[in-house]
Design a binder for these strands. Structure first.
Lengths: 341, 341
DNA sequence: CTGAAAGCGCTAACAT
DNA sequence: ATGTTAGCGCTTTCAG
């Protein structure tokens, strides 16, 4: 008990306590190379008794290896990214790699800053949301020399690898399904999406498909901030007052869709006969609403998994071959709010 | 362009490119010490041109300082921890400190493992959820010699600092409010809480307060897994079938409470006259339901902020004095489902 | 199977 | 205002 308090323990302490060289202690602690069972025991005992925790900073510098995967996402508070994280974790759990998360709040400047900070830790790989980045960010990604996987979206050109869905196509397909079901007076509600490129692409795909069928969007409204559920309520009530003859409402996410659904049910609308609804994301949370909202799964967990698998394959020794341009195909779930054709 | 591809740049590269010593380059890049405006410019220009990103691994080792705060929480997928993170972030944003998150899934063994990994990075501070830890974890925390803030709960003895609410008291106060409002046949629904100590303490406080008033819990049920909204629906419908004369339902969280609320409304129950409801957490998401569920704010963002402030104060030079045993006082929000006395 | 020497990329502490 | 020297705690490499 003579160690000066607050000096963290080093390999050397364990070496002295066990009477084994630092090098061999290091070998034991990393299960590397051959060490006799006897010395092994001695070392492990000493390390445990002292409460030694290796210093990864030093280890990483010496070995030029950091088992970190930088995960850069816009937000953690909506339902989508926690599930992506779950997918990533499920794959990395069985490897020495560890995810480290950075949040950008959908701001390019913040993304740039976060990326810089992350790169300064020299991670083994980067998983980053979206294909749209500042020039500086893209340059950093390219120059990093490590595997980069851009996730969520496949409508664009990745720096390196890419896993996601086509949001443009997702919008198109939902539009097609809505039209096939016979709806004609269609309204749209969604976030102000200057910086949410995926929401924007869904919207573009949606309107395109409508146009192709000779249909013009009958009404649309964008919001920002606030609780999504009540926003959905407010927007829907305002829109139905303004354009009472709408027979379908497409929402840019399930939560505002759910708010709209609750309001319409209260008002006594016949769903999906008189009016149909659809959202986007396939949020599990919403199971338990009076009706299941039509939606489209964004393949969140799968995207996380596939992205992590690419990093794992690329960082394994020797590097495994693996598909690096992955476009997943989401399917429509009609729920109870989008009638069959 | 003669640098061998994939060798990360070092200070030395910038030094050579700018004709300034490594030390001065380092000073410029860290805004430390006096450097003439002229050399400053030269260095910055060279660094930018090369795309140099400092190596923090080396920097941390040399300076014996790592501006990381380990945040160890059970989960990221419910509503509570993302908001705690928001609070933490809001404070750390203005400091050099950076949060790094570890997830325990409510498993003590996993907490131990995550804690060990985190400590191996020698963070400047630790924020960890709960007061219940394995002996090994507690030993690591104590031995780490860095500021430790245990958050969420104050019913127990912390290793070091502590910020939270008393969940036992939260349960008691809700029980008192329910009794004062005249409800007598009370049912409880919540998660199986062997490992969720805070839910358990709320439950204990609740039953205690009922007992004190001579009331016995009329029915209770525990669930695990599944979507909370539909669980709330199922449990409520089952419980009302089994014990039809219940006049109040206390839920261990707002989400299952919301499920119950939706079901009861559909069945035509008179709320809060015939039957009252309350949840816990003060989840903003739920604004927009047909009725506002009575709840109690868990002070999530505030907890995060105060915890981060403690770490900041303790790691600043010289260490600031700050309150390290913080018990927040949550208040009841009666919403539309708990009538006045 | 074990150990000794060298150095990872940076910064603290002194020079000058 | 700038440079020099000596490590930080570990792992790589090479010798026994």
């Amino acid at each position: 008990m003579s160690r000066p308090l607050n000096r963290p323990l080093t390999l050397r302490d364990v070496s002295e306590a066990s009477g084994v060289s630092e090098m061999t202690v290091s070998r034991v602690l990393r299960n590397r190379g051959d060490v006799s069972a006897a010395t092994r025991e001695k070392v492990l005992k000493a390390a445990k008794a002292l409460g030694y925790v290796p210093n990864r900073i030093a280890g990483s510098l010496a070995s030029q290896r950091v088992n970190l995967v930088a995960v850069i996402i816009p937000s953690m508070s909506n339902m989508v990214f926690p599930e992506v994280m779950t997918g990533i974790n499920s794959v990395l759990e069985d490897t020495p790699l560890q995810p480290v998360v950075g949040i950008t709040d959908y701001l390019p400047e913040k993304e740039e800053k976060v990326l810089y900070e992350m790169l300064s830790w020299r991670p083994s790989g980067i998983i980053i949301a979206g294909l749209e980045h500042s020039d500086a960010s893209r340059a950093m990604l390219r120059a990093s020399g490590i595997p980069v996987v851009e996730i969520m979206d496949t409508d664009g050109t990745p720096v390196d690898a890419m896993v996601g869905i086509s949001h443009r196509r997702a919008g198109r397909e939902m539009a097609d399904a809505i039209i096939k079901a016979g709806y004609r007076r269609i309204g749209f509600m969604g976030t102000k999406m200057a910086l949410d490129h995926r929401a924007r692409k869904r919207f573009e795909g949606f309107t395109q498909a409508l146009a192709k069928a000779g249909i013009e969007m009958a009404d649309q409204e964008f919001y920002s901030g606030g609780s999504a559920l009540s926003k959905g309520r407010e927007l829907t009530s305002a829109m139905m007052a303004r354009t009472p003859d709408l027979d379908f409402l497409y929402y840019s996410n399930d939560l505002i869709g759910a708010g709209g659904l609750l309001w319409l049910l209260e008002q006594g609308y016949d769903i999906p006969g008189q009016i149909g609804l659809a959202g986007f994301n396939g949020v599990e949370l919403l199971q338990g609403l009076p009706r299941r909202l039509a939606t489209m799964d964004a393949c969140r967990a799968e995207i996380g998994r596939r992205a992590a698998e690419i990093i794992v394959a690329r960082t394994s020794e020797p590097a495994q071959d693996i598909e690096t341009l992955v476009t997943l195909a989401p399917t429509i779930d009609r729920g109870d709010t989008l009638r069959m054709p």
